[in-house]
């Protein structure tokens, strides 16, 4: 379980997160939604100790993120950043292989190699395995980065806008992969999504943020109401029900 207790963050005098308290149970997909600048990326980077906590506490399986050895945390929690630009010329296979770094510190064993092959297969990257990542399209590179994060094999995966640059086919594919990984291996995914309908279709829980505050929190059916969406995104949109899940007509 990830426990976020009374976390606030400000940059200079500008408040970014405002007294957030949140428990994310183990297992399932939690979607983090909200407008640009709501603080979604900031929250993820605090959980992943990419920036220091200013106030409050964050515990991952009881381990406080500020004081737990970084390597130990890296075996439990992986993060894919929103701007995960990688300038190095690594092949897709090498890049995914570095996802195993927290476990082997550079000396990959047979198990690590098998996991890399599994990740290549899961994300349909075998054909690109020997290509340098700087020769890939944005979407292909994004898939390689997601595969690397997945390959880290952690109980918790924090994915900041993983659908960036992906076409419809691969966006759907990625969400389904995530679903099966989470279901089969009891993993936990916390995913920032901009497409509210991806969240509606695939998430177990949706947390909606605005101006550094949690506005709504619950199942897709609980959170995706006309009132909530107006509160979060600033305009009213129609909501339909299809196969028991909400469908938001966000574009109309």
């Amino acid at each position: 379980m990830i426990r976020i207790e009374n976390v606030s963050l400000s940059h200079r005098d500008m408040p970014i997160l405002h007294d957030i308290t949140l428990s994310l149970e183990k297992g399932g997909i939690t979607a983090l939604v909200g407008p640009n600048g709501a603080g979604k990326s900031s929250l993820l980077s605090l959980i992943a100790r990419l920036q220091p906590l200013q106030t409050g506490r964050i515990l991952v399986d009881g381990l406080p993120v500020g004081s737990t050895p970084s390597r130990l945390l890296a075996q439990r929690l992986a993060i894919l950043r929103q701007d995960g630009a990688v300038a190095s010329r690594l092949t897709v296979r090498e890049l995914i292989g570095f996802g195993r770094f927290p476990h082997h510190q550079g000396r990959a064993g047979a198990a690590d190699i098998a996991l890399v092959e599994a990740a290549l297969e899961q994300f349909e990257l075998q054909a690109l395995a020997e290509r340098f990542i700087d020769t890939l399209s944005g979407g292909q590179r994004q898939r390689a980065l997601v595969a690397m994060t997945f390959c880290q094999g952690t109980d918790y995966m924090l994915l900041d806008e993983p659908l960036n640059n992906l076409d419809m086919f691969h966006a759907r594919q990625l969400m389904r992969s995530l679903r099966s990984i989470v279901d089969e291996r009891q993993r936990t995914a916390i995913v920032v999504l901009h497409d509210i309908n991806q969240a509606a279709a695939h998430a177990d829980r949706i947390v909606a943020l605005r101006d550094g505050k949690v506005i709504a929190d619950g199942t897709p059916n609980e959170v995706l109401t006309e009132d909530n969406l107006e509160l979060v995104f600033g305009y009213r949109m129609q909501i339909m029900q299809i196969a028991g899940r909400p469908l938001v007509l966000q574009h109309l």
Binding site: P69, S70, R81, S88, F98, P102, Q105, G106, Q152
Partner: peptide, 21 residues
């Protein structure tokens, strides 16, 4: 320490995410 240096070249955030000091 070649592997550590390669991880480092992936940037600060990736390095920390992978548990590198």
């Amino acid at each position: 320490i070649a592997d550590r240096l390669t991880v480092l070249s992936l940037g600060r955030d990736v390095s920390i995410g992978l548990g590198l000091s």
